[in-house]
Computed example of a mutant assay.
Amino acid sequence: MFRKMYFFLYFFAYLIYSLPTLKKVKQLPPTMSVDERDRVQHDLPKRWARNLVGITGSTITVTGNEHIPSGPVLFVSNHQGNFDVPVLLGFVEKPFGFFSKVEVKKIPFIPRWMEVMNCVFVDRSNRRQALQSIKDSVALLKEGHSMVIFPEGTRSKGGPVGEFKTGGLRMAVDANVPIVPVAIEGTYKIMEQSKFGFKCADVSVRILQPITSHLGEEKADTKALAAHIQRVISDELQA
């Protein structure tokens, strides 16, 4: 319980402390390269996320950073628990934005940083808005920013990897960028398995070989692509 109290105290106190930095990164010169701008804008959020995970006492092991191509990519990950977000944000080397549900906008301070990090908010109950969110994400990918999606749409909490929805994968096809599968194991043990507070857990993040079969294919079969990526991640988790 003490860990949980400290977690939320740190969660919001650090965000308030970061407001002057947020103002500065919003004023970065437009002459900066995309890579340099993303590195600067993501530096503080990455440290914040690593510290949040550290408060839980969990150990994070990341393999496969060498598989990440240069330039923009779409990370596609399974979704085990609420800690998937801070784990990926804090421990994957390449900066990226999230394709996030619009409800996150209700959390104080968080949306301000997410906008700077090129995150896109989606209202799944509004089809027109959801389609526009995908278009916005495609534009960001074309500009050179990377994104991450959780195509299961809900947390598996340690169960089998759920069916991957195809909508988000359209981003990689339309933006013509590689897809990097990510297999996460153990994040659900931190929060979802704990009735009170947090549990420390051993978490593995395995970054897999990029998928490029869709590149240059405007009419790529996203349903087959989704099934293939789901199978690749499932096989990795069962290995």
Score class of each variant (00 low, 15 high):
F2G: 13
F8Q: 03
L9C: 11
Y10L: 00
F11P: 03
L15D: 01
T21Q: 14
L22N: 07
L22M: 09
K26S: 07
P29E: 15
P30K: 13
V34F: 05
R37F: 06
H42F: 03
H42D: 05
D43S: 14
L44N: 07
K46C: 02
R47S: 03
R47V: 00
W48T: 01
W48C: 00
R50I: 00
N51K: 08
L52M: 03
I60F: 14
I60K: 12
T61L: 08
V62G: 04
T63R: 09
T63I: 12
N65E: 06
E66D: 05
H67F: 10
I68C: 01
I68Y: 09
P69D: 02
S70F: 12
P72L: 01
S77D: 02
N78C: 02
Q80L: 05
F83P: 08
V85T: 14
P86S: 03
L88G: 03
L89I: 04
K94L: 03
P95F: 13
G97V: 02
F99N: 09
S100N: 06
S100L: 15
V102M: 13
E103G: 03
K106D: 06
P108Y: 00
F109K: 01
R112I: 13
W113G: 01
W113P: 00
N118Q: 15
V120M: 13
V120E: 15
F121E: 10
V122Y: 07
D123E: 06
S125G: 14
R127M: 13
R127P: 12
Q129A: 14
Q132S: 10
S133F: 09
I134Y: 05
I134D: 01
I134E: 02
D136G: 11
D136M: 11
S137P: 09
A139Y: 09
H145C: 07
M147E: 08
V148K: 07
I149M: 02
F150W: 07
F150S: 07
P151L: 04
P151F: 12
G153P: 09
T154F: 03
T154V: 10
K157Q: 10
P160H: 07
V161C: 07
G162E: 12
F164C: 04
F164G: 01
K165L: 06
K165W: 10
T166H: 15
T166D: 04
L169I: 02
M171W: 01
V173Y: 07
V177K: 15
V182F: 08
E185L: 12
E185Y: 11
G186V: 01
T187C: 06
T187Q: 00
T187L: 05
I190W: 04
M191L: 14
Q193Y: 06
K195C: 13
G197N: 04
F198E: 09
K199T: 10
K199N: 15
C200E: 14
A201Y: 04
A201K: 04
R206L: 13
I207P: 03
L208P: 03
Q209A: 11
T212C: 15
S213G: 09
E218L: 14
E218H: 10
K219I: 11
D221R: 09
D221T: 00
A226M: 02
I229G: 05
I229F: 06
R231I: 14
R231C: 10
V232C: 14
D235T: 15
L237E: 03
A239C: 07
